[in-house]
C-alpha cells in the first residue's frame, strides 16, 4: 500500500535524482579535456542539458511538496511482485554468458510467471524452457543471430579447447 505521502516522496526522489544527474554530467564534462577546434565544442550541450536537469529537478521538488502529484489519494502496489520480476531479469543477465540463453531465460520466464500469480512452477518452467529453446533455434539457425549457448556448454562440447 502506497499512500499519497509516499507518492510525494517518490516525486521528490525523482527530482533529487535529476539534480544529481545534472551535477554528475556537469562535473564529468568539466573533467574531460576538450579536443578539436570546432566553433562549438562537445561540451556545450552537456552543460545545457545538465542545467536543464537541475531546473526540472527543482520544479519537481517544488511540485512534490506543494503541487499536484499523481495518485495523491495513494496507490496500492505489490512491491514483492516487482522485486521478483526485477530479480528474474537480473538473474538472466548475470547468468547469460555462463549458462547460456536457454537456462537463464527459462529462469526469467518462471520468475515472471510466479510474480503474476502462476503457481504451477513445473508447468511454468516447462513452458519457459520450450519458449527459450524455440527462440534459440529460430534466431540462431533461422535468422542467423547469435544467442549465447553458454561458456559451460562450450567447454563441455569441446573439451580439447583447453
Amino acid at each position: 500500500m502506497t499512500t499519497g505521502r509516499s507518492m510525494r516522496a517518490g516525486e521528490a526522489v525523482l527530482g533529487g535524482g535529476l539534480i544529481a544527474l545534472g551535477g554528475l554530467i556537469a562535473v564529468e564534462t568539466m573533467l574531460t579535456p576538450s579536443v578539436g577546434r570546432a566553433v562549438v565544442g562537445p561540451a556545450l550541450f552537456p552543460y545545457l542539458i545538465s542545467g536543464g536537469l537541475v531546473l526540472v529537478g527543482l520544479s519537481l521538488l517544488r511540485e512534490a511538496f506543494a503541487g499536484a502529484v499523481a495518485h495523491a489519494e495513494g496507490l496500492e502496489l505489490d512491491l514483492w511482485a516487482v522485486a521478483l520480476v526485477a530479480a528474474g531479469l537480473a538473474v538472466q543477465f548475470l547468468l547469460l554468458d555462463t549458462l547460456g540463453w536457454i537456462p537463464s531465460t527459462t529462469i526469467l520466464f518462471a520468475a515472471v510467471s510466479r510474480a503474476f500469480g502462476g503457481r504451477r512452477l513445473v508447468v511454468n518452467l516447462a513452458i519457459g524452457l520450450a519458449l527459450a529453446a524455440f527462440t534459440f533455434v529460430a534466431f540462431n539457425y533461422g535468422l542467423g543471430l547469435n544467442l549465447p549457448e553458454g561458456s559451460i556448454v562450450e567447454r563441455l562440447t569441446s573439451p580439447d579447447a583447453e
Partner: peptide
C-alpha cells in the same frame, strides 16, 4: 503470467541481439 513472462523473454531477446 505466461503473457508477461513471454513479453520479457522477447524484450531481453531484442535488447541482447
Amino acid at each position: 503470467p505466461w503473457l508477461y513472462a513471454g513479453i520479457l523473454v522477447f524484450s531481453s531477446l531484442g535488447a541482447y541481439t
